[in-house]
Design a binder for these strands. Structure first.
Lengths: 128, 128
DNA sequence: GTACGTGCAAATGATTTGCGTTAAG
DNA sequence: CTTAACGCAAATCATTTGCACGTAC
């Protein structure tokens, strides 16, 4: 693993994402970090989000055409409202293990991780 | 279920997607259908892909910021190469049922469907 | 006939890139 | 120092929209 340069910008982005389970978009990260580093550019935010998810330090989820980011790399999945796009986490080591076990049969690819998305309608939008 | 107007454009799009498991992007659908209907516009393709997935006639998968479409609505999942973005289907009714069973516990959302993505490195890109 | 669908071009939103400048180690 | 990261503005992509015209039923 190569060394990582900890610039102020990178540190603030990580700091904002740390313990943040609201699944912010790149734009939301930009607006939040800007409060600390007023001169940060959107390009830097994008570059860092890509860099950090490439390193496996944060995770990317794609919902309705826009990427969202989160710190949690553990065995968890997503509940996504088809109507409003809201995302909630769904922790289940059990499900991850079940899926990984099944994927051992796969021949054409070396599987490294798995993620299950549950689609439905949230309470606010009329479900349940 | 309301009635559907079967325009030539819509029929050709469906026809191209039928039995097509290559997960084409909207642009690829456009280029394919254009061979039959040279005057079709990209907007029409987008409108129809949205319309058809809204009706549950086709399915949408979002990979690396772009939507991809497929006809298969059955219990299946995706193997996605993190390097080249290639998608392969992974059929497993077992996994779908396991996930749905787990999701019965969820209180904040009425779950309708589930989809598991497996991320890894494909043979071509150096995996296995 | 009329509501819905289409084609075109322009608009929007998300993300990326080129490049001269700055700062981390 | 020197190399990776930044900031900015322009570029690129995917997708959506407004609107006049066309067509399925």
């Amino acid at each position: 693993m190569e060394k990582i340069t900890y610039t102020n910008q990178r540190v603030e982005i990580l700091n904002f994402l740390k313990d943040n389970y609201s699944h912010p978009t790149a734009d939301e990260v930009f607006n939040a970090v800007r409060k600390k580093l007023s001169r940060i550019s959107k390009a830097t935010v994008y570059q860092n989000l890509k860099f950090l998810s490439g390193k496996g330090i944060i995770q990317e989820v794609n919902i309705k055409g826009a990427s969202r980011f989160e710190p949690n790399l553990e065995a968890h999945h997503h509940l996504i409202c088809k109507n409003c796009g809201k995302i909630m986490d769904f922790n289940s080591k059990e499900l991850t293990e079940f899926a990984l076990k099944l994927s051992e049969k796969v021949k054409d690819m070396r599987i490294e991780s798995t993620n299950t998305n549950f689609y439905g309608i949230c309470k606010k939008c009329g479900g349940k």
